[in-house]
Design a protein around this nucleic acid. Structure first.
Length: 893
DNA sequence: ACTCTGCTCAGAGGA
């Protein structure tokens, strides 16, 4: 009762004080720091701190009194009293806390004898970071931020190996012979061999040094194991040198000379580039972080999480655990109640395995190797067969690590005082004019001339120019690959030529699939290459060339064999994020080729460039730029790719203008909208190609019967093979959009699209030749649901996803249609529109509401052109309804 | 106002 009064008193007091603080500010802090925290009581309690008061209690000691709540409405307040050392916890209003201990009459008492308070319970920080912050808070933060700045050393490798041997010995034996054996085993593991390669250390050296420590392991085991030694431990002296906390965030004066010294090789422009990108990357990672909700994995039961599709619960382990090697265990799981539920989990996804029981949280992590209706096969880093067979497991998709580490690492590397970084700074930040040599004869080895000439024969003129420019370059070349101009073939040919000349090549791209597309072509020419990266992400036909597969098949256990593998290859291929591989610490390539370069953000694109003398960026800045979520970062210029930035140096640019995809009518749209007439067809065959519909005559007859085909200009506009382009205006139908939380959609457009698709299929078009494109995911969902009833196999995807690919027939649903002139972001980008209209080879059908779309400048330009060509046709009122009947009639036959 | 792909991890030692 006394406590209750105290609470009331405190609340009264503190709330009046609190009221003077702007409530908005408090709310902002809560939303910004803890966007997804669901307040609750019980085992996983999460309290919001409303007020903090430091008071003297009756004994004259200091205590902190927190007014806290676990209810979302912020009513039902409780009191938490922190005594003794707990008083120093820097808890503030707006913080989230977890409490352990007793709560009586809505009051928690946490003191030296009982209870715990955990500040920010859903934030994960490593033990190392905490420990290092004791000496210097700034250092701890910086080394968390710039993770790659701490280079690997011999001492670290020895330390890691010794730790591992020690851990193995704990489960095994500390007998000298056994330790010897374990040590020998450990230094043969591929990951340690890779580290030795990175550090240029010999296996014997490492073995010798590791062995020197083994006797002390024996001694330790003799002294401390299997004895009751609780009182025998030597007294350890703890001495802490704690850096004085600074009042302000600025740098201490004593540091200034050091900073000056470390940055004297940098110009002002370099420092500005560095801080701008740091800022943009930080903003962007905050936007990404806000979308994550990692705490669900420990706060939400599997049955709840399953609904999101990123979790599978109630799993039991089947059969034996197959030991692939140390640290890789193949597990089979099945659902206790039968089939695997509907899930987003796919082969290659990273997962965390926990027990359904809370005490078995995060037992192991690894990859999904295979998933089907009944079984999930996972490659895990721990062997779970030590647990009882009846253990129920859950599988959670690991939250994607929104990678700020790699770009920040690359950015700081760009600032280093090395030859490579200086050259890149000159070229990239200061726009130094790229240099070229004058004569091919000085780069072409004599014996390669015939081979190169022969390869060049198969190319068109701009492609040959591109090859020549690359060979002559001393710094970089930019290849603009307009839609359908055969970028992949061009890169493949370039690699063949460089290979023939004896140059070493690093081949990278943004996505795994783009890397593999080039390699699939390359494989036909018997060019040896090494594909780096997770084997599960690699195309099956390429997997035999991955490091993991080669090491397995050749059972590589010595450094000499590994070095042989790394040195025998001229071509190394990986994604531009996969540059942490040890091979890059020892090798310098003659050329680095970056595919999809216009879609990669600058600090990511930089990564592979550090390891080559010259580079080639291939892309098209008239297509989609790197995606940036954060509005502020976007406004600061974060979506400018390196390709776009360097494109102003025209002397380095070659344009591939001859395209083999679109017929001339389709091509002309993009020529009008973006390329100013530069695009041309590769041949008459390409220019005149039209769709071939085997059963078109029959379908036409039926349409004549049900819908007066020849009196219906819009049907002819859509279906006649000789009309490759057609815009259907839905204004009169009408077809209004729906705006929901999940995105924008348009059911009427979806129905029309599905009708048209089914007629094309009926007329003999293979569903895999048809592509349906919409700017919004929500629209894809609706179209997919409608299609599922009739035709599968038709690929429905966003504009962004269709970049780089094509289909014979493409139907585009523009979705936006409203009277109030509301305009979305997506269609404002003319590059997105350019991609959408350049995917079709033979037939392009555009569907949308003309008056609404005219509010978007890029679309207005396109529509004006289409209008002048008489390619816009109005759909009659309520047409989608009559079409449904027609479709019904068709299907009844 | 809704578009997207990458990536072990934490702590191995030194100061």
């Amino acid at each position: 009762m006394e406590q209750l009064n105290e609470l009331e008193l405190l609340m009264e007091k503190s709330f009046w004080e609190e009221a003077e603080l702007p409530a908005e500010l408090f709310q902002k802090k809560v939303v910004a720091s803890f966007p997804r925290t669901v307040l609750s009581t019980g085992m996983d309690n999460r309290y919001l701190v409303l007020a903090v008061n430091t008071v003297q209690n009756k004994e004259g000691n200091c205590e902190k009194r927190l007014v806290i709540t676990a209810s979302q409405s912020l009513e039902n307040k409780e009191l938490c009293i922190l005594r003794n050392d707990w008083c120093s916890v820097p808890v503030e209003p707006g913080d989230i806390i977890h409490l352990e201990g007793d709560c009586t009459s809505d009051t928690w008492i946490i003191d030296k004898d009982f209870g715990y308070l955990i500040l920010y319970p859903d934030m994960l920080i490593s033990g190392t970071s905490i420990a290092s912050s004791i000496r210097c808070m700034r250092r701890a933060v910086l080394s968390e931020t710039f993770r790659s700045s701490d280079p690997a050393t011999r001492q670290m490798l020895i330390g890691t190996v010794l730790h591992e041997v020690f851990q193995k010995a704990i489960n095994n034996s500390f007998a000298p012979e056994k330790l010897q054996e374990l040590a020998f085993q450990t230094i043969q593991e591929i990951r340690h061999l890779k580290e030795m390669y990175r550090l240029n250390l010999s296996q014997d050296e490492i073995k010798q040094e590791v062995e020197d420590y083994l006797p002390s392991f024996c001694k330790w085991a003799g002294d401390f194991m299997h004895k009751n030694t609780s009182t025998d431990f030597p007294q350890m002296q703890l001495s802490l040198a704690v850096e004085q906390q600074m009042d302000c965030s600025s740098v201490p004066i004593v540091m200034l000379p050091k900073i000056e010294e470390e940055t004297q090789h940098l110009k002002q422009t370099h420092l500005e580039y560095f801080s701008l990108w740091c800022l943009m990357l930080t903003l962007e990672s905050q936007s990404k972080d806000n979308k994550k909700n990692h705490q669900n994995i420990w706060l939400m039961p599997a049955s709840e999480m399953e609904k999101s599709g990123s979790c599978i619960g109630n799993l039991i382990r089947m059969e034996h655990v197959k030991i692939v090697c140390d640290g890789q265990y193949l597990h089979n799981f099945q659902c206790k109640h039968g089939a695997i539920p509907v899930t987003n989990l796919m082969a290659g996804d990273r997962v965390i395995v926990s027990g359904e029981e809370r005490s078995l949280f995060a037992l192991s992590r690894g990859y999904v190797k295979e998933i089907n209706m009944t079984t999930v096969t996972c490659l895990l880093d721990r062997n779970l067969s030590v647990l009882p067979e009846s253990t129920l497991f859950r599988l959670d998709q690991e939250e994607k690590n929104c990678d700020i580490d790699t770009p920040l690492g690359n950015l700081s590397k760009l600032m280093e005082n090395t030859f490579v970084s200086k050259k890149l700074r000159d070229l990239i930040i200061d726009f130094r004019e790229p240099q070229f040599i004058s004569y091919l004869s000085s780069v072409l080895p004599h014996d390669a001339k015939d081979t190169v000439a022969c390869i060049l024969k198969g190319l068109n003129k701009p492609q040959r120019q591109a090859m020549k420019k690359v060979l002559l370059s001393k710094d970089y070349t930019l290849i603009v690959g307009m839609p359908g101009t055969g970028k992949t073939t061009t890169i493949c040919t370039l690699v063949r030529i460089l290979y023939a000349c004896g140059f070493s090549v690093l081949l990278t791209s943004y996505t795994h699939s783009a890397v593999d597309n080039i390699l699939l072509k390359l494989a036909k020419f018997k060019i040896g290459f090494l594909r780096l990266g997770q084997i599960q992400k690699v195309h099956p036909a390429i997997q035999q060339f991955t490091e993991q597969e080669i090491c397995r098949s050749k059972s590589i256990k010595s450094l000499a064999l590994l070095e042989e593998l790394y040195n025998s290859q001229l071509i190394v291929a990986t994604t531009c994020m996969g540059i942490n591989h040890p091979i890059f610490s020892r090798k310098i390539f003659d050329f680095c080729i970056v595919d999809e370069a216009s879609q990669i953000s600058q600090p990511i694109c930089l990564g592979p460039l550090f390891f080559s003398r010259r580079f080639v960026l291939v892309g098209d800045h008239q297509q989609l730029p790197p995606l940036v979520l954060n509005r502020e970062a976007r406004a600061l210029g974060m979506s400018e790719s390196l390709f776009k930035r360097l494109e102003q140096n025209k002397s380095a640019v070659v344009q591939l203008t001859v395209q083999y995809r679109m017929n001339s009518k389709i091509m002309s749209l993009s020529n009008k909208l973006t390329y100013e007439g530069k695009l041309e067809c590769g041949s008459d065959k390409v220019a005149n190609a039209v769709i071939n519909l085997r059963h078109f005559k029959d379908v036409k007859l039926e349409l004549e019967f049900y819908a007066d085909y020849s009196d219906n200009p819009w049907l002819m506009g859509v279906f006649e093979p000789n009309n490759p382009v057609c815009f259907l205006n839905t204004d009169k139908v009408p077809a209004p959009e729906q705006v929901e939380k999940g995105g924008v959609s348009n059911v009427t457009e979806a129905k029309l699209i599905v009708f048209l698709t089914s007629i094309f299929v009926k007329a003999g078009c293979s569903p895999s030749d048809i592509g349906i494109i919409a700017p919004y995911r929500q629209q894809l969902k609706i179209i997919n649901d409608l299609l599922a009833r009739s035709i599968g196999m038709v690929e429905v995807n966003t504009v962004d996803k269709y970049q780089g690919r094509d289909k014979s027939i493409v139907l585009v649903s523009f979705v936006r249609s409203n009277k109030d002139g509301t305009v979305g972001e997506l269609l404002k980008d003319w590059r997105r529109l350019n991609v959408a209209i350049t995917r079709a080879k033979h037939k392009l059908i555009l569907l949308g509401c003309v008056p609404s779309l005219n509010c978007y400048p890029p679309l207005e330009k396109l529509l004006n052109h289409l209008n002048s060509e008489k390619l816009i046709i109005d759909l009659p009122s309520r047409e989608h309804e009559s079409l449904c009947h027609i479709l019904g009639d068709f299907q009844r036959e």
